[in-house]
Design a protein around this nucleic acid. Structure first.
Length: 422
RNA sequence: GGAGAGGUGACCGAGUUGGCCGAAGGUGCUCGCCUGCUAAGCGAGUGUUCCGUUAAAACGGGACCCAGGGUUCAAAUCCCUGCCUCUCCGCCA
């Protein structure tokens, strides 16, 4: 959520932000509702003030033994008026909330301006495309011929966009999870957490998935709980409505969780293989930082995520998302895109974002400054990495001409000594 | 799932015949004093949030004693609902 003061006092910044994002939003209505809301607050508070004073007077009079019937009658009337105004205020406040919660974050100045992903800015490459003296295959072909990824049976069990991993495939998935968790906890200083995989509506609202993107989420029937689309939601909400100590910032968490997404807007897209699933595993990095150095922390977060691919020795590039491609809650995002020789594409494998205080304001996550005042922290997160997509990357980059898969050196301690499959 | 108990500030803990209670007291914390050092001691201060006002500090006012409703001129205190925690029983990975 954007600071309401910015919305009403620096309106031009908000207009510019919406323009750059290509986001249509009814600012006029919001401003009108905001004004209305504040007027009603003042009205009802003025009356409450009268009520408090008269009530105290009644208490005093009663102590002296008198019974000020006229004053009581008078206050009864005021009570009715307050109730009335409060009712209006509640309606207006709801209206205001509904609007302000569907307004996207303001992009950081360094974010390239553009309409869609074609305007994203590639900021770096690492490694090189591997040279194959044969035509590399896509992971779905390798996976099926080696019988380590079974899409047909998963469809039978559940439906489309699910995968059954078998033998080496399942082991590889599990090895990658452990490899990443160990790397981030032992070498990058993150604290491991294992959160609930379902969260309530408040948590989803805190990180920005709700109210705007409910159609992307799997909801639990009969409860107001949702399956998490990313560990960002439960992990960021760890400190929901808390005040942290300034000296404990930054706080860094890493979490492995499965993620559940409806992919409602992606009908017919990426239907083959592991690319786009309703359920996938991910190791997620989350940081709570001081506002003054959240952008340094973002660069660090990006490096921590990149490190996974460096150790696996897989070529990738990093791009800074442009304003039109930026996520709803994010002020700045880098995507890490891994090279997939079997599909001849770079594919997003991690998304590292600084949300500034957009989520902190929604989730009421603050820290106490030296002078005793509180301020919202900045929240950041990034995949470190998406596991399914890393499996694709390993399979496609480490395939051999005879249809086998080599195990990257860094992964060998996690693979029961297997160096090549089969 | 059944039976009971309870949810107060960073923490502990008063307050339940409704009325200057945002809330005693203690601990912690901050600042100052004192003391060879440490420990102890002394003094002062120490919630969040919203609206208004202001250049700002300050100030005025509203709200908050788990959450949401209700009773009342007035509720931390009474009533209802929900959530959570604890104890016992049952069940269960």
């Amino acid at each position: 959520m954007i600071d309401p003061r910015i919305i009403r006092e620096k309106t031009e910044i908000v207009y510019e932000s919406l323009e750059k994002r290509g986001f249509s939003f009814d600012m006029e209505t919001l401003l009108k509702v905001d004004e209305n809301r504040r007027r009603l607050i003042q009205e009802s508070e003025k009356m409450k003030n009268i009520r408090n004073e008269l009530s105290n007077e009644i208490a005093r009079l009663k102590k002296t033994g008198s019974h000020p019937q006229d004053k009581i009658e008078h206050l009864r009337g005021i009570g009715k008026q307050i109730e009335d105004t409060e009712q209006q205020l509640k309606t207006t406040e709801n209206e205001w909330n509904n609007l302000v919660l569907i307004m996207p974050n303001i992009p950081h100045d360094s974010v390239p301006v553009g309409h869609n992903e074609e305007n994203n800015q590639i900021v770096k490459f690492w490694g090189e495309k591997p040279a194959f003296d044969f035509q590399p295959k896509a992971h779905w072909d390798i996976g099926e011929s080696l019988d380590i990824l079974d899409f047909k049976r998963a469809a039978k069990i559940t439906g489309s966009r699910f995968t059954l991993y078998k033998s080496f495939g399942a082991l590889l998935e599990r090895a990658l999870i452990n490899f990443m968790l160990d790397l981030h906890t032992r070498e990058h200083g993150y604290i491991e957490v294992l959160p609930p995989f379902m969260v309530n509506r408040e948590a989803m609202t805190g990180t920005g998935q709700l109210p705007k993107f409910e159609e992307e989420l799997f909801k639990i029937d009969g409860l107001d709980y949702f399956l998490i689309p990313t560990a960002e939601v439960p992990v960021t909400n760890i400190y929901n409505d808390e005040i942290l100590k300034e000296e404990e910032l930054p706080i860094k968490f890493v979490a492995y969780t499965p993620c559940f997404r409806k992919e409602a807007g992606a009908h017919g897209k990426d239907t083959r293989g592991l690319t786009r699933q309703h359920q996938f595993n991910k190791v997620e990095l989350v940081k709570f930082t001081h506002p003054d150095n959240s952008y340094n922390e973002l660069e660090g977060l990006l490096l921590d995520a990149e490190d996974v691919l460096k150790r696996l020795n897989i070529h990738y590039r990093v791009s800074a998302l442009c304003t039109g491609d930026l996520g709803f809650s994010s002020a700045k995002t880098y995507d890490i895109e891994v090279w997939l020789p079997g599909q001849d594409v770079y594919r997003e494998i991690s998304s590292c974002s600084n949300f500034e205080n957009f989520q902190a304001r929604r989730a009421k996550i603050r820290y106490r400054k030296k002078n005793g005042k509180t301020e919202f922290v900045h929240t950041l997160n990034g995949s470190g990495l998406a596991i399914g997509r890393t499996v694709m990357a390993v399979m496609e980059n480490y395939q051999t001409i005879d249809g086998k898969i080599n195990v990257p050196d860094a992964l060998r301690p996690y693979m029961h000594g297997i160096t090549r499959f089969p």
